[in-house]
Simulated scan of single mutants.
Amino acid sequence: MSVRVVVADDQELVRAGFSMILDAQPDIDVVAEAGDGEQAVAAVRAHRPDVLLLDIRMPVMDGIEAARIVCAESGCRVLMLTTFDLDDYIYDALRAGASGFLLKDVRRDDLIHAVRVVAAGESLLAPSVTTKLIAEFTTRTPARPLAPPSERLAALTAREQETLRMIARGLSNAEIAQAMVVSEHTVKTHVSNVLTKLGLRDRVQAVIAAYESGLTVPGACD
């Protein structure tokens, strides 16, 4: 079954180039293109794609708002496009529900891989990159009251909270298993429980939840 994709970018050549690369793959089908945020939302509503490749900076409606609407209304996974690897909008995009981001000068093979990874339900960012990114933007985000961990994370067991803390530190499942002295299968179960109980899509949102709940803070190493 093909991965259905909508490509949204206000630059026609970029949009057409990405669409051509993706549509050439036997397991990927570009079902629509969009030139602004409103068109992107409309395309997702009309075509129900698996993945929306979405530029952060878009006319009419910006990519952040478009991502927020798409993630709230559907199960479509959002993969953001940006010009710089530490774009000021990336943290907001991830909080809106995006599953990761790509630079616009991404290599062909990396673009294809990213779409497949996100369509499979995973976050695009490697754990180490996730930690660096979220820590960077958490420190830039204006301070606001955070619910004590006991309130936000009350549904989690002690082991699940420990797992979430390690996810926020950027540890892989194998590294978490080693630290907790359990099997990787057990860790996968803990991760799945964390995502389900907190209503999160992937590990990227789990990192954000860990910071925003007060369970961990940028720069924490314990």
Rank of each mutant, 00 (worst) to 15 (best):
V115F: 10
E65I: 12
L52C: 09
R144T: 12
A210F: 04
E136N: 13
E136A: 13
A8L: 10
A210L: 06
L164Y: 10
S172E: 08
S19E: 04
A34K: 01
G100W: 08
L146T: 14
A220F: 13
S99W: 00
A135T: 10
S19R: 12
V14H: 03
L124Q: 03
D109F: 06
A168P: 02
G63S: 04
R165M: 11
D87A: 08
T196A: 15
V204C: 07
S2H: 01
L215V: 10
A32Y: 04
V217H: 11
T139M: 13
E122K: 14
S128P: 03
Y89T: 03
R203E: 09
Q178I: 13
V70G: 04
Y89V: 00
E160V: 06
A154F: 04
P142F: 02
R48G: 07
H47S: 10
L103C: 07
A174C: 01
A158G: 11
R68D: 09
P49Q: 05
H47W: 03
I167K: 07
I64S: 06
R144N: 04
A16Q: 14
L94Y: 01
M1P: 11
L54Q: 10
L111S: 11
M180V: 08
V60D: 01
I167H: 04
D55P: 05
D109K: 14
D87C: 02
D105N: 12
L153P: 04
V7F: 12
T216N: 05
R116K: 09
P142Q: 09
L94N: 06
A40F: 06
G214R: 11
Q161H: 07
R95A: 13
L111W: 00
E136L: 08
A177T: 09
L124W: 06
S183P: 03
V6K: 01
Q11E: 04
D10W: 04
Q11T: 12
P218R: 03
P26D: 13
R140P: 03
V31R: 05
I112Y: 05
T186K: 09
M80L: 15
M1F: 14
K197L: 12
R57L: 00
D92H: 05
S192Y: 11
A126C: 02
L13Q: 09
